[in-house]
Amino acid sequence: MASIISFTFREAVVDVEYKGYLIPKGWKVMPVFRNIHHNPEFFPDPHEFDPSRFEVAPKPNTFMPFGNGIHACPGNELAKLEALIFIHHLVTRFRWEVVGSKSGIQYGPFPVPQQGLPARFWKEQSSPIQDVCP
């Protein structure tokens, strides 16, 4: 739903006309990833949380949470691995629920829940995975 990088700066390497506007070579441009990631041309219902939309890889340059190409974040694979490990332990060892407000995002400049994201966590009593993975 959101990217840690809301925008970036690039330099136009050639003159570009976009929607009737001329962007001269050398001008600084600021792609806003949030607008790309919420474009209904690429993602149906872009404001709905729907992880299944990634069961098929998105078209190139339509989802760039870590930038792209030579400008991609060098730590993107580490960040993905850390998130995967965290989520694995969260869902296999704990029960949890969001409490309070569940909607509304504020951008300043990064997207965060308007009222925070209060949650309650409790440890599962026992599970087969806990016996295998201490």
Rank of each mutant, 00 (worst) to 15 (best):
P51R: 04
F49N: 07
P60C: 08
N61L: 13
H38Q: 10
V56K: 12
M64P: 00
H37K: 09
F63C: 11
F63S: 07
E55G: 01
H37P: 04
D50A: 14
F54I: 05
E55F: 03
I36Q: 01
H37N: 06
V56W: 00
S52I: 04
N39I: 00
P51L: 12
A57F: 04
D50K: 15
P58V: 12
S52W: 00
D45Y: 09
E48K: 13
P40T: 11
A57E: 15
E55L: 09
K59H: 15
N61K: 12
E48I: 11
I36W: 02
H47A: 08
A57R: 12
F42G: 02
R53P: 02
F43K: 05
R53H: 03
F63D: 06
M64D: 00
K59I: 03
D50N: 15
P60D: 15
F49L: 14
P46I: 09
D50P: 01
K59F: 10
D45S: 14
N39Q: 03
E48G: 02
F63T: 07
F63Y: 15
F43W: 05
P58K: 03
S52C: 09
N61Y: 14
F43D: 03
F43A: 02
P51W: 02
E55D: 12
F49W: 11
S52G: 12
P60L: 13
P44Q: 10
I36P: 00
E48V: 14
H37I: 06
P44G: 11
D50V: 13
V56D: 11
P40C: 08
P58D: 10
D45P: 03
M64Q: 05
S52V: 05
S52E: 15
R53A: 08
N61R: 14
E55C: 03
H37F: 02
E41W: 01
F43I: 06
I36D: 02
P65R: 11
D50L: 15
H47K: 11
H47D: 15
E41D: 14
F54N: 09
N61C: 10
M64S: 01
S52A: 13
P65I: 12
D45H: 14
F49R: 10
F49E: 06
I36K: 00
N39T: 02
I36Y: 06
P44W: 00
H38W: 05
E41P: 03
F54P: 00
P60E: 15
N39P: 02
S52Y: 05
E55V: 00
P58A: 13
I36M: 12
V56C: 09
I36S: 01
D45M: 10
K59D: 12
F54A: 06
E55P: 03
F42Y: 15
F49H: 07
R53Q: 05
P51I: 10
H47Y: 10
K59T: 09
F49G: 14
E48S: 14
P65W: 04
F54S: 01
P46M: 07
F43R: 06
D45T: 11
T62S: 07
A57V: 06
F54Q: 11
D50T: 14
P51T: 07
K59V: 05
P58I: 11
R53S: 07
V56N: 06
F49Y: 14
P58T: 08
N39F: 01
F43V: 02
A57T: 08
P60F: 06
V56I: 14
H38M: 09
P65A: 14
T62Q: 09
P46R: 01
F63I: 11
D50I: 14
D45N: 15
E41A: 13
D45E: 15
H37M: 05
